[in-house]
Simulated assay, not measured.
Amino acid sequence: MYVVDCATGEVLYLSRIDMSVSYVSASPRQFAECLRVFASEVTAGADDPDDPGFWVNVLFDVANGDYSEQDD
Score class of each variant (00 low, 15 high):
1 M>N: 09
1 M>K: 02
1 M>E: 11
2 Y>T: 04
2 Y>D: 00
2 Y>Q: 00
3 V>A: 12
3 V>N: 10
3 V>D: 15
4 V>A: 04
4 V>G: 02
4 V>N: 02
4 V>S: 02
5 D>P: 07
5 D>W: 12
6 C>S: 15
6 C>Y: 10
7 A>M: 14
9 G>H: 09
9 G>M: 07
9 G>V: 07
10 E>W: 08
12 L>C: 03
12 L>N: 04
12 L>W: 01
12 L>T: 04
13 Y>M: 01
13 Y>R: 10
14 L>A: 03
15 S>H: 11
16 R>I: 08
16 R>P: 05
16 R>Y: 13
17 I>L: 15
18 D>Y: 10
18 D>F: 03
20 S>N: 09
20 S>T: 13
21 V>G: 09
21 V>W: 11
21 V>Y: 01
21 V>D: 11
22 S>E: 13
22 S>W: 11
22 S>C: 14
23 Y>L: 14
23 Y>H: 05
23 Y>F: 15
23 Y>Q: 08
23 Y>M: 07
24 V>E: 04
24 V>W: 00
24 V>P: 01
24 V>R: 03
25 S>V: 00
25 S>N: 12
25 S>I: 01
25 S>Q: 04
25 S>F: 03
26 A>N: 04
26 A>H: 07
26 A>L: 12
27 S>R: 10
27 S>N: 08
28 P>I: 04
28 P>S: 12
28 P>T: 11
28 P>K: 04
30 Q>D: 00
30 Q>R: 14
30 Q>W: 00
31 F>C: 06
32 A>C: 09
32 A>M: 13
34 C>S: 11
34 C>D: 11
34 C>W: 09
34 C>Q: 13
35 L>A: 10
35 L>E: 00
36 R>W: 04
36 R>N: 13
36 R>P: 01
36 R>Y: 05
38 F>R: 03
38 F>G: 02
39 A>T: 15
39 A>S: 12
39 A>G: 13
40 S>Y: 08
41 E>V: 10
41 E>P: 02
41 E>S: 08
42 V>G: 03
42 V>T: 05
43 T>R: 15
43 T>P: 02
43 T>M: 14
43 T>S: 11
44 A>Q: 10
45 G>C: 15
45 G>N: 13
46 A>P: 00
46 A>W: 12
46 A>V: 12
46 A>K: 14
47 D>T: 14
47 D>F: 07
47 D>R: 14
48 D>N: 15
49 P>N: 08
49 P>I: 08
49 P>E: 10
49 P>W: 06
49 P>H: 09
50 D>N: 15
50 D>I: 09
52 P>G: 11
53 G>A: 15
55 W>R: 03
55 W>T: 04
55 W>A: 04
55 W>H: 02
56 V>W: 06
57 N>G: 14
57 N>S: 15
58 V>T: 06
58 V>G: 03
59 L>V: 08
59 L>F: 12
59 L>Q: 11
60 F>I: 07
60 F>G: 06
60 F>T: 08
63 A>R: 07
63 A>T: 07
63 A>H: 06
63 A>K: 01
65 G>S: 05
68 S>G: 02
68 S>R: 02
69 E>K: 04
69 E>W: 02
70 Q>L: 13
70 Q>P: 00
71 D>H: 05
71 D>F: 04
72 D>H: 02
72 D>A: 03
